[in-house]
């Protein structure tokens, strides 16, 4: 006999929290990861083996709000919707235009990218570099967790069985420039071999802030505040002589999981080049 999935389509976020607590149902936002993960042979119904909670339609989760100190993105806002919002940082928009293809961007959500917690999630290095935090809610209330403490391993994160990711909070900060690069086999639809996010602030000729976050080269996003600190406030002339050396400090952090997309050697080599090119570009920037 063919079993039917148990599926809930709540009318409000409150109801979604309640259903999640009572049934432990699996949230489905755009479904672009879940429908592929649970697909069967043609014609058969995808079956996650547990109840499913549709949340993609909830208005409370599908909004962008700009405040004085931060931008708040509802977890179920689609990529296409984010591209049309002025408050969304340019580096995130650039990342989205290189992510998948228009039909995926019309359904896929940044909340889904975060909760899927794949090492190849393209928005993750950008969100790490922007130092986002995540608002996780359940029937009893909310808690806020920095993104680097939320994602704990490939496909693993700190979401509890009764929680839903509600919002992504991007703190506003001043930057002189940014860089996003994605290395993949084909422009559309290819998952990244490496994705790179860099942000920097230069004031009176000195690097005041620099953030480098790299995706797909380790079980979770690579970011080293220790290495960044060694770059900040050192005279530009000495940094100029040592970009290759600076980049090489990242070498021990590059430990990709085994996959079919690329090799460790390739990823390490190209990552160091990306870092070096970024540092060189930062140094050439006037200001």
């Amino acid at each position: 006999m063919v079993t039917q999935n148990v599926v809930y389509r709540p009318g409000s976020l409150e109801e979604a929290y309640r259903l999640r607590t009572d049934t432990g149902a699996l949230p489905l936002a755009g479904g672009t990861d879940l429908m592929v993960r649970y697909r069967k042979t043609a014609g058969l119904v995808p079956d996650p083996g547990r109840p499913v909670l549709f949340i993609g339609h909830l208005k409370d989760l599908r909004r962008v709000e700009e405040r004085a100190e931060e931008v708040r993105i509802g977890s179920c806002t689609t990529y296409t919707e984010l591209l049309s919002q002025k408050a969304v940082p340019e580096i995130l928009k650039r990342c989205i235009t290189l992510l998948a293809s228009p039909p995926i961007r019309n359904r896929g959500t940044v909340g889904g990218n975060i909760c899927n917690s794949s090492p190849a999630g393209d928005t993750l290095p950008v969100l790490h570099a922007l130092e986002c935090s995540l608002v996780l809610g359940n029937i009893r209330g909310e808690r806020t967790v920095p993104i680097d403490r939320f994602i704990t391993g490939p496909g693993e994160n700190a979401l509890s069985e009764d929680e839903i990711l509600k919002e992504i909070v991007i703190p506003k900060a001043a930057f002189s420039g940014w860089c996003y690069r994605k290395i993949g086999t084909r422009r559309a639809n290819a998952l990244a071999k490496i994705s790179f996010a860099g942000l920097y602030l230069i004031e009176s000729g000195e690097v005041h802030d620099i953030r480098i976050a790299i995706g797909a080269v380790a079980p979770t996003v690579v970011r080293s505040r220790e290495i960044e600190k060694t770059i900040i406030r050192i005279p530009r002339t000495s940094l100029q002589r040592s970009t290759v050396e600076m980049a090489a400090r990242y070498r021990p952090l590059i430990r990709p999981i085994t996959d079919q997309r690329s090799t460790t050697g390739y990823r390490a080599g190209v990552t160091l080049v990306l870092i070096e090119q970024f540092l060189t570009a930062v140094l050439q920037k006037k200001g």
Partner: peptide, 22 residues
């Protein structure tokens, strides 16, 4: 699985892959 576009339809005017849309 969302890679080829043969199953494309428009949902509220936007292009969507019907093979990965519940």
């Amino acid at each position: 699985e969302g890679e080829c576009g043969a199953c494309s339809v428009l949902v509220n005017g936007e292009i969507v892959f019907s093979c990965i849309t519940p």
